[in-house]
């Protein structure tokens, strides 16, 4: 059996990725989470002194809180099975990654288990967020200083 035949068998055995359906599902689940976020934003703007610019922070915190409840009760896992990236890309997905790691490693203790494993998945997001923010800000500042662009 040569390489080509082998590849053919592998392709047959692997289930085909339903690209279109996955995209539709991600769009709808992600859209619904963002719509709920928009409702929470309206709530904070209506009843608390937040503007459109400042209401984002409490909205994100509230969504992560909701993600905690859904993660702990196992509902978020079911949402993720349907939504794919639609449930992973919003901050609730980030919250789910942190919180589920914390819950799963609690038996190893709070310092080594919870503290040590919390950022197993989310750590890379923080690393690349901080790193790219630094690089982008550095490049832009240098470009402004030598007069290529303005703020």
């Amino acid at each position: 059996m040569d390489q080509q035949q082998f590849q053919k068998i592998v392709d047959e055995k692997n289930p085909k990725v339903p690209y279109f359906m996955n995209i539709i599902k991600a769009f709808i689940v992600g859209g619904i989470i963002c719509t709920i976020g928009q409702l929470i934003t309206f709530f904070y703007m209506r009843f608390f002194p937040f503007t459109e610019a400042t209401a984002g922070n409490p909205t994100v915190a509230t969504l992560v809180f909701i993600a905690m409840i859904l993660t702990g009760t196992g509902i978020y896992k079911k949402i993720a099975q349907v939504g794919g990236a639609g449930s992973a890309v919003p901050v609730t997905g980030f919250g789910n990654a942190v919180i589920s790691a914390a819950i799963e490693h609690r038996s190893e203790g709070y310092v080594l288990g919870v503290g040590g494993n919390m950022f197993k998945l989310a750590g890379s997001v923080i690393l690349f967020g901080v790193l790219s923010a630094f690089v982008v800000a550095l490049i832009k500042t240098i470009l402004v200083n030598i007069g290529v662009i303005s703020w």
Binding site: V60, A61, V64, F65, A67, M68, T71, G72, T73, G74, Y76, K77, A80, Q81, V91, F94, G95, N96, A97, V98, I99, S100, A101, A102, I103, E104, H105, R106, S107, Y110, V114, M118, A122
Partner: peptide
Amino acid sequence: SAAILFGAIGAFIFHKRKTMY
């Protein structure tokens, strides 16, 4: 910050189970 805080609280409240996908 919210993820850290609620992660710790969640670990305190909820029992261990398969929660990750």
